[in-house]
Nucleic acid binder design. Sequence first.
DNA 1: TCGTTTTCCTAAATCGTTTTCGTAAGTTTA
DNA 2: TAAACTTACGAAAACGATTTAGGAAAACGA
Lengths: 338, 338
Amino acid sequence: MVSMKEIAKRCNVSIASVSKALNGYSDIGEETRNYIVKTASEMGYLPNSSARSLKTKRSHNIGVLFMDEAMSGLTHDFFNPVLESFKKTAEEKGYDITFTSGNISGQKMSYYEHCRFRGVDGVVIACVDFYSEEVQELVRSELPVVTIDHVFDGRIAVVSNNIQGMEELVSYIYSMGHRKIAYIHGEDSSVTRSRLNTFYRTLQREGVEIPDDYMLTVPYRDADAAALATGQLLELKNPPTCILYPDDFSALGGINEIRERGLRIPQDISIAGYDGITVARVLEPKLTTICQDTAAIGRIAAEKLVDLIENPKTTLIDKFTVSGTLFKGASVKRIDLR
Amino acid sequence: MVSMKEIAKRCNVSIASVSKALNGYSDIGEETRNYIVKTASEMGYLPNSSARSLKTKRSHNIGVLFMDEAMSGLTHDFFNPVLESFKKTAEEKGYDITFTSGNISGQKMSYYEHCRFRGVDGVVIACVDFYSEEVQELVRSELPVVTIDHVFDGRIAVVSNNIQGMEELVSYIYSMGHRKIAYIHGEDSSVTRSRLNTFYRTLQREGVEIPDDYMLTVPYRDADAAALATGQLLELKNPPTCILYPDDFSALGGINEIRERGLRIPQDISIAGYDGITVARVLEPKLTTICQDTAAIGRIAAEKLVDLIENPKTTLIDKFTVSGTLFKGASVKRIDLR
DNA sequence: TCGTTTTCCTAAATCGTTTTCGTAAGTTTA
DNA sequence: TAAACTTACGAAAACGATTTAGGAAAACGA
């Protein structure tokens, strides 16, 4: 590995001059700089990031904390494109992405310890149990942090606009003539609460009351549970004309159950999902859903985090809301109001 | 940040002793060691990985190189669980995962340069254009490398057993009475060639000849192209009784096309996919497919790479083949042979 | 011509570790 | 009791960069 020292020797200059030439400092002569830069590239020089980090305390590395489980309404199919977009943006700004999980070098570490050990410049948190002690420790720490789909006081958060999304979805379904709308929703989390609240509010505004037995709780992204719940709804004396699911994947489970009972979508019953995962747009009938703007969520999270890292004093600490767009699939039928 | 120096001062010992105590060397007294370890943990000491890497030339960091595009038959839905499993195994062995893409710190770098810059101990390559110059450079380098689903001479590779998988799949379909089997296959790659070859060979052994117009090429993971190709097959004078798809996702496109023409699966036509992605097991009729053992692929890749990193002299350089398992979904009907 | 400023460059300290080598004390052996 | 080992520890040199403080030479102003 060729180091600055060797370049210095070859060029008959000091190491300091090499450093300055290579890093664009001003107090170095034009000729010397060119000469040094040229020989450096000839020698195949590459900076050593460990040495650099050691000295500068900046690693140009961002930690990503996310679990594979379907927590907080952020499902895996949904988070992947978010991470992809985050990675792309971060890389453009010169940062690498490292996963920070529990244990390293054999011994267990907390997330926070792991981050400190690796010397990441900041952390993005998503898809985890935000109430766990470990996450709390990280959020309370001095590290720059951005959270996705969860808001902590005094921390930057990027959240999908569940209020707008749910309102648009429910309004659309209402406008299609549905009045008996059931909602199989995910387990409790800030996302779930926000959607549930908007569901009730939007319908109440239209004067629609939803009976309690139209509301069921299932885990996110659990097709079987969703199928079961769907069966329950279909067996009601007064079944709904439309069923909302916690996410698209769950909706797939619902589709199976509905078809198994010989019913057709949307002729016999309408359904809608949430998220807008890829398969939802491939299947027939195309699923009516709210497409999350995963690219924007990832990009904004990366932009804000890098901004926070590089300009800690002036970066606005706030919640950034990203709106989804309603996809009007064929899974919701227009009902004639007699 | 509390360093060894501070611990040394507090304990009235030398820095060397602290290092020895903390890293389990033998030439340190039992009492001193305990005292040092105790104060270190009291002071909240964490090693500085940059300093350590600088000195030891080992980062305990593994680079992951994979593109989001659907190259080489390794689709995204399929690779995700592989990466997940890889990550888990690597972490258990004390390694972190960093994505190594093209550019860092603003300037463009080749993958190899990026790896050297970050000082990763090894690289796993998957899902990329294995013939690109950049990948070649990496593979020819001195870095420990493991590739997934592609074999380079003198390099460790973990590949899914396409021969066994295809053979099992085709034999099963044959045993269900199908003789007119069409194969919509992916674009050329070593994976595709291996599957194609096995497809022909297996059927030939049974004395079945496949007409050329039963064979169509589409990009991997392109539902629309698969739908188009499906239409083409259905319009043949002598249409097949069963269609094989390059992957499960493509099969979804086929399903749509088939249904749009008023045909039922499997009553009117049988289909089969490849990979065994999650949705394939949720949809009805459940898709007959080869379930890749993604967990094993990721785990073995990580194990081999770590082994290669830690024991370069004795690690077996070889190709490790992981078999998939046939999932007999309802999408293939039994045909009575009259 | 002399002092002042600017330009270009270097020496050296430092970041937090690991690791080699030396040595003093303690222990064993003959 | 002297010689030969062990054991336990420390001093110091790396690793490869960044950065501060300062100095020599050149350029400048009067």
